[in-house]
Write a protein that binds this DNA or RNA. Structure first.
Lengths: 296, 296
DNA sequence: CGGTCGATTGAGGTAACTCAAGTGCGGTGG
DNA sequence: CCACCGCACTTGAGTTACCTCAATCGACCG
C-alpha cells in the first residue's frame, strides 16, 4: 500500500513564513514525535480541557510523517484512525467510476480528516500529501476512550466533527449558488484566513495546489481558475505569479459576487479602493418563496 | 414561538404508500409520544445496541410534532437538541446575506439533523417542515450521557454523524462534477431509494418539495429542473405529472451522465430499453493528473 | 370566481466549458 | 553547460449548457 512515489522532497518550502517555526514541538520518544492532550487541543483550536493538564503517558499521541505525493489513506481502506494536521498541506479526494478526482478539501494545520471512515469502517475518501507533512495519529478507539474519561474532551470531539459538517455545508452552498469569480475569491480569502491563523502572512502566500486541483475543488475548470486569477490581478485585487498569491484588497474579495463585465473593467484598474457596497444583489437561484413570516 | 400557519392538515398525504403505516408506534405518556432506545436505533437504521433491550424510564425520548411550513429551528437559534425524523418531510436551508435560501438537505424518516449546532452551540442552518412531521427530540446532553453509559450507542452517534458527513461529501462531488441532467437523475434515484427504505413504492411517489427547492438543492434553476424532468419524461425514463413522479428506467437514471443532444433524442423515444453501457465517459473537470494509472 | 402560486415552455443571452496554441520553469541527460 | 522534455500555467477563439426573462396554464384556496 502507499505507492510511495519518490519525488523531490522539498523540505516544507514555505518561503512566505516570517519566523519559520520548526516542526519540533512534540515530545520525543523512541525517536518519534508525540503530542500530549494540550497540544492536541491547541492545534485543533479548541479550549484546552482540564484533563489536558494531567501529564499522562496514556495521553500521548504519535506523529507520522508523509512526503509530498504520498497517500495517507485510500478509498475503501480499512479505517482505524483519524488524523490531525500538525504541519504541511494535503488534499482529500473522491474518485468517481471513471477515475476522475473530485477534491473535497485541502487540510492544513489544525484540520481533522478521516472522519468519513467511521460510518462504514472504511475510508470514503483518499488523502494525499501536497507537501511533506507531519500528522498526529488519532486511533479512533483511543479517542473515544479518552472522551469517556474526560467529558470536555468528548464534547470537543463532537464539536470538531460538527465543525467539519458546517464547513461542508458552506461548501455546498458555495457550489450551488456562487459564480466562478465569487468562488475563487472566497477560496483565496479562506486560504488567507487560514494562513493568518497559522501565523503566516495573510497577504502573501504560496498555493500548494495546482490550478487543476483548485478547479476541481471549486467545481470549475483549470482554465476558468487561471482566467479568474488573471482578472483579479488585472483589476488590482491580487497579484499572481504562478503559485505565489498576493492579496491586495481582501474586503473586495470577501464581498465579491460577480465581476463587472470585462468591457467596463478597464477603468476600474485606475480607481482602486473605491468599493464599499457589495457590487450587486442578484436574487440568485436559491429558494426564497416562503409561506411563513419567519419570525421567532 | 412557531407561528402555526393553519393550512390544510393533509394527514400525511402519501397516496403511493401500500399499507399506509399510521404514525402511532411510540409509547404514550402524558398524552405525548415517546420512543425508547430500540425504536431510536431502528429508525436510524443502525443495529440495536444491547442497551436498547433494557426498559428504562430514562431511555425514553419525547416526540414533537410540526405542521407543514413550521420551522423546527432557525439559524443562530441556541442549540440544545438534535432531531430524528420519525415521519414526514423537511428541508434544511442556509440563508445568505441577501435572504436567498440554499437548500442543504431534505430530511425524511430516519434522518438526523441539527448536528451543525453542536460546534457553535447555535444552529448553523434552518429546518422547515414540508409536511406534517413527527420528530424525535434528542437533547444533546442526554444523548452524550447515554453514549457514555452504552458504548455501542456512543459509537452509533459517531457513526451517524460520520454518515452525514459522507452524504455531504457526495453532494459536493455531485455539484462539482455533474451535469444538470445527471444531478436531477441522481436526485430522483436517491429519492426512489429512500422511499423504498421507508416501505413506500420506489416506482411511484410524490415530490414533497417545489421545483424551486429542488433547483436550489441541486444548484440549478427551477426552469432547468422542470425542463430536465420533461426531457426524462419525453425519452421514457420517467413519467411526470406535477408533483407525481413515476420511475420507468431506474438503471438508466443511475448511470446517466449526459443526455444525448435533443436533435438525436427524437428517435430514442421509440426504441426504449436499448441501453446498457453508460452513455459516454467524459473526463469531466475533476482533478485527474494522478500518478496512478486510474483505470477501471 | 378571481387571485395566488407552482409548473411548463419558449426565446434569447451569457458564463463557463472545450479545444488549442504558446510560454516559462525545473529537471535530466548529453 | 546547454538542449531537451514534461508539466503547469496562460491566453485566445469558438461552442454550449444553463440561466434569464416572459408568457401561459392549471391547481388550489379563500
Amino acid at each position: 500500500m502507499l505507492t510511495t512515489q519518490l519525488c523531490a522532497i522539498r523540505t516544507e518550502s514555505t518561503p512566505t513564513v516570517p519566523g519559520a517555526t520548526p516542526i519540533e514541538t512534540g515530545w520525543q520518544r523512541q525517536g518519534k514525535l508525540w503530542s500530549n492532550l494540550k497540544e492536541l487541543c491547541d492545534v485543533l483550536r479548541i479550549p484546552p480541557t482540564s484533563a489536558s493538564l494531567i501529564a499522562d503517558e496514556e495521553l500521548l499521541f504519535q506523529h507520522v510523517q508523509f512526503k509530498t505525493g504520498q497517500r495517507i489513506h485510500t478509498i475503501g481502506q480499512s479505517f482505524d484512525a483519524l488524523y490531525i494536521v500538525h504541519s504541511g498541506f494535503l488534499k482529500t479526494v473522491l474518485i468517481d467510476e471513471y477515475g476522475n478526482e473530485q477534491v473535497l478539501s485541502f487540510p492544513m494545520k489544525g484540520d481533522l480528516f478521516g472522519v468519513d471512515g467511521i460510518h462504514t469502517r472504511r475510508y470514503a475518501s483518499e488523502a494525499v500529501a501536497l507537501s511533506n507533512c507531519d500528522l498526529i495519529l488519532l486511533p479512533f478507539k483511543k479517542l473515544t476512550a479518552l472522551g469517556r474519561i474526560h467529558l470536555e474532551f468528548e464534547h470537543a470531539i463532537y464539536s470538531v466533527m460538527s465543525r467539519e459538517l458546517v464547513r461542508e455545508q458552506a461548501m455546498i452552498s458555495m457550489l450551488g449558488a456562487l459564480s466562478a469569480e465569487a468562488r475563487v475569491a472566497r477560496f483565496l480569502v479562506s486560504l488567507s484566513d487560514r494562513f493568518a491563523e497559522m501565523g503566516y502572512s495573510s497577504k502573501l502566500f504560496n498555493l500548494r495546489m495546482t490550478r487543476h486541483e483548485i478547479g476541481s475543488y471549486l467545481g470549475l475548470t483549470l482554465e476558468t481558475v487561471s482566467r479568474t486569477l488573471s482578472a483579479f490581478n488585472e483589476i488590482g485585487l491580487i497579484t499572481v505569479d504562478q503559485r505565489s498569491i498576493g492579496i491586495k484588497d481582501a474586503d473586495a474579495l470577501k464581498t465579491l459576487r460577480r465581476l463587472p463585465p470585462s468591457s467596463a473593467r478597464a477603468k476600474q484598474v485606475a480607481s482602486r479602493k473605491a468599493r464599499q457596497q457589495p457590487p450587486d444583489v442578484p436574487p440568485s437561484r436559491g429558494t426564497c418563496s416562503e409561506t411563513i413570516p419567519a419570525q421567532m
